[in-house]
């Protein structure tokens, strides 16, 4: 389907199919798991979320030139919370039964990652009409996914379709599917099937589809609502902690053979990260000692400069030594790490 960017129809298609918030982006897990004990609950939750999403998107988009960048997150929270309160009161008045069965999860729409994520990623940067339809598309995608999940759980767990029991099926229904473990189980199976389909298509066509967050890489932040706004702060700090640890380990290590190997204690995280990210470069550099200086300096800035002249003096000897023992600080650290891990494994 080829649709022009940011038109209402394209937005609807995008929200329901292409970037389905539950199945593709894996956002908004809490309500997805909690309220899908029946298909009706799924529809109720999905539609109320859709209303909040569309209206919040519309208003945030209208106000996007007024809201200062620094306080946009509190502003979003206030706007979203106001709409959630309105929906909450309306539901209490007009659909009391549904309100009762959804319970605390209606006010908790405020912290639904989907709404916050769309506000930050789309509505704050785009025109009101497109944002409104983006909200509706995303909301309907969410509704669809959780209704299907509610339908499955209701059918297996209580032997009913939309509250109507089928024959004597309820007597044999494994109730665990409408209890907490069933929620995790059904969602896990649904996402597994989706991942399998994507893997098959990829293998057949030889292309890589944009799988979002089902892969291990970056999964630390993938399901966090704040990841759009924190811009990987978590990962940055984690990298910093890792670098600190490595620097300490390097400082603690006795500097036996070469003074050049001691790493300065104030290693910058970015450097170590770069060094970690390019193990391949280091290896190629080792194989060709003539090329050592430029590549190494680039890959591992953390290394002090004294090493360069030393290496330049005797490239031939260097090569022999390198094949015997890991040379650079980076290599030694890595060796140390593997040794540590092996030790841990042995201890276990």
């Amino acid at each position: 389907m080829n649709l022009a960017e940011n038109t209402p129809l394209e937005r609807l298609f995008n929200g329901i199919v292409k970037e389905n918030p539950t199945l593709v982006i894996v956002l908004g897990m809490c309500p997805t798991l909690a309220v899908t004990t029946s298909a009706m609950n799924g529809i109720g939750m999905g539609l109320s979320t859709t209303v909040v999403l569309a209206l919040a998107n519309l208003f945030i988009s209208l106000l996007r030139n007024v809201i200062p960048d620094d306080i946009r997150i509190p502003s979003f929270i206030v706007i979203i919370a106001s709409f959630v309160t309105m929906v909450d009161m309306l539901m209490q008045a007009y659909t009391p039964e549904l309100y009762k069965s959804l319970g605390i999860y209606i006010p908790l729409i405020v912290v639904n990652c989907i709404i916050f994520g769309r506000a930050e990623a789309y509505a704050y940067k785009n025109k009101p009409l497109a944002s409104f339809f983006d909200g509706i598309g995303m909301g309907l995608g969410f509704t669809l996914a959780i209704t299907v999940m509610g339908f499955i759980r209701e059918l297996i767990g209580s032997g009913a379709i939309f509250g109507n029991p089928i024959g004597s099926l309820p007597e044999y229904a494994p109730a665990i599917f409408v209890m907490a473990p069933g929620a995790f189980l059904v969602l896990a199976i649904m996402i597994t099937i989706r991942a399998h389909i994507i893997n098959t298509i990829e293998a057949r066509k030889g292309i890589r589809l944009p799988v979002t967050h089902t892969d291990e890489e970056g999964s630390e932040c993938s399901s966090c609502a704040m990841r759009m706004s924190c811009a990987g702060k978590f990962q940055k700090v984690e990298a910093m902690m890792k670098a600190d640890k490595e620097a300490k380990a390097a400082a603690a290590k006795p500097t036996d053979t070469k003074p050049a190997d001691t790493k300065p204690a104030d290693v910058k995280p970015a450097d170590t990260k770069a060094a970690d990210a390019k193990p391949a470069d280091v290896k190629t550099a080792e194989e060709k000692p003539a090329d050592v200086e430029p590549v190494d300096a680039k890959a591992a800035d953390a290394k002090p400069a004294e090493e360069k002249p030393e290496e330049a003096e005797s490239p031939e000897n260097k090569k022999k030594e390198e094949s015997a023992a890991p040379q650079s600080a980076l290599e030694r650290l890595k060796a140390m790490k593997t040794a540590d891990e092996a030790e841990k494994e042995a201890n276990k």
Binding site: G182, F184, L185, A188, I191, T192, A195, N199, H213, E216
Partner: peptide, 16 residues
């Protein structure tokens, strides 16, 4: 197909 997210969910299911 089970790697990553689904696997964690299966584990969580057993914990539940």
């Amino acid at each position: 197909a089970v790697q990553g997210f689904p696997f964690t969910m299966f584990t969580a299911s057993l914990m539940a």
